[in-house]
Design a binder for these strands. Structure first.
Length: 388
RNA sequence: GUGGGUAUAGCUCAGCUGGUUAGAGCAUCGGUUUGUGGCACCGAGGGUCGCCGGUUCGAAUCCGGUUAUCCACCCCA
């Protein structure tokens, strides 16, 4: 038997939830005046190396990378933002300084070891907003994410942080590295490695001993420049005004190199260790990093597979079941089916069955109404009809 | 990449210290009910016990290997 590749799953039992999510998220994004964008699944490898960052694990060891028949070094996209930014620049919107707001959804690929909530092929719904540098846009994007999650009654915690900008982040990182170097001997192996790889990651190390030492480590939010600090304060004020609850998490970092200033993450405590259901933030330098003009941007991405178990769908009776009890009734039933199917959900049972069998089936298949025809109905020209 | 767990029907799982024909519940289909569903009862179909090898008179059961899968770490949606 041929089975799906490791870490790749058919969306089959949850497909109703999946489409319901896409539909609802799409509707909300459109209400926020965002338009749809579809970009290729396959892109040049250097796009991801330059955007996501060569130091990141995603680029380092998780990319589906290969040489195509034309000799191009290509990758299945590991995330959605890079492709959208590439499209924005390719279309010259950066030169024109045209603001653009887009939403998208589709599969992403990361060659990782699968576990609960982590797949090699998974689906994201995301939005990107270009050309608006103010915190108010960050608020708008966070508001949208919260509305999408709220619409499905999903319980979450919103974590926010500021990663600083070109001015204050390097300064902070140096402070932190200095601190870490002093206590290096006492830290776990992972953290010792992180000092050079990704020092901010040490802050949320799960090792208890590290946590004790690191509770005194310098925090980014106390090391922001005036502008970043002002923006972060404004962000919190605006979220308060909208009644959006949040926690400031100074150890929150995004896994991709391109983020600055506002970073946020919606987490759930019901889906295992991989708890992030939506991650996002601001990436004001990314357009430039990909050879565009300087255009600020902010966005988020949701992991759809992680959301599905949090969506509870109550199956309601729906649609019409049409059945026949004699072959002579088929024409009459088919005619009815042809008529109804233009406006509503209809199921035509091809097999001739007895009345109680039809009713039993219609009930199990959750139809709301049955129309059944046998000898009597053909004679009268009327269906046996019943609401279930 | 690292560590641990698991592998028996479509699904969830029993199957003891090896013993003859491998079980249950749920699901599916049919019947009880020849024109009124859900409930109940009766019945049926459905298995290379992941795969390969070893021990043994005999292996789902013990041993080795292998593959898959799950969970966690790293990291991330």
């Amino acid at each position: 038997m041929i089975k799906a590749l490791r870490g790749m799953k058919d969306i089959i039992d949850d497909s109703d939830k999946f489409t319901a999510f896409i539909d609802k998220a799409t509707q909300i994004a459109k209400n926020f005046s965002f338009s749809y964008i579809e970009t290729p699944l396959l892109e040049e490898t250097r796009l991801f190396k330059r955007s996501v960052g060569e130091s990141s694990d995603i680029v380092n060891k998780e990319m589906y990378q290969f040489i195509d028949k034309g000799g191009n070094d290509v990758c299945l996209r590991p995330e959605g933002t890079a492709g959208v930014v590439r499209a924005y620049i390719q279309k010259k919107y950066d030169s024109l300084q045209t603001p653009k707001q887009w939403y998208y959804y589709g599969p992403m690929f990361r060659y990782e070891r699968p576990q609960k909530g982590r797949l090699r092929e998974f689906h994201q719904f995301g939005v990107e907003s270009f050309g608006e540098g103010s915190v108010y846009e960050d608020v708008k994007v966070i508001l949208m994410a919260s509305k999408i999650l709220d619409s499905f009654g999903i319980a979450y915690t919103l974590k926010i942080n500021s990663l600083g900008c070109d001015e204050c982040r390097p300064r902070y990182t140096q402070n932190l590295v200095n601190f870490l170097e002093n206590v290096k001997e006492e830290l776990c192996e992972d953290c010792q490695r992180r000092i050079t790889q990704n020092p901010i990651r040490t802050l949320d190390c799960k090792n208890e001993k590290c946590q004790n030492i690191l509770k005194d480590a310098p925090r980014i939010t106390y090391n922001l420049c005036d502008e970043c600090n002002k923006d972060f304060e404004l962000l919190k004020q605006e979220l308060d005004k909208l009644g959006i609850k949040y926690e400031v998490d100074t150890s929150l970092v995004r896994g991709l190199d391109y983020y600055n200033k506002t970073a946020f993450e919606f987490v759930s405590d019901e889906i295992g260790a991989q708890s992030a259901i939506c991650g996002g933030g601001r990436y004001d330098k990314l357009v430039e990093m990909l050879d565009g003009k300087s255009v600020p941007a902010v966005g988020f991405a949701m992991g759809i597979e992680r959301l599905l178990p949090l969506i509870n769908t109550q199956t309601k009776r729906d649609g019409v079941y049409i059945g026949i009890m004699t072959e002579d009734a088929r024409d009459m039933a088919m005619k009815k089916f042809n008529q109804l199917v233009d406006t509503q959900k209809v199921y035509f049972e091809n097999k001739v069955r007895k009345l109680n069998q039809h009713l039993k089936r219609a009930d199990k298949m959750n139809y709301k109404k049955v129309l059944i025809a046998g000898e009597d109905e053909v004679a009268k020209g009327e269906f046996f009809s019943k609401e279930l």
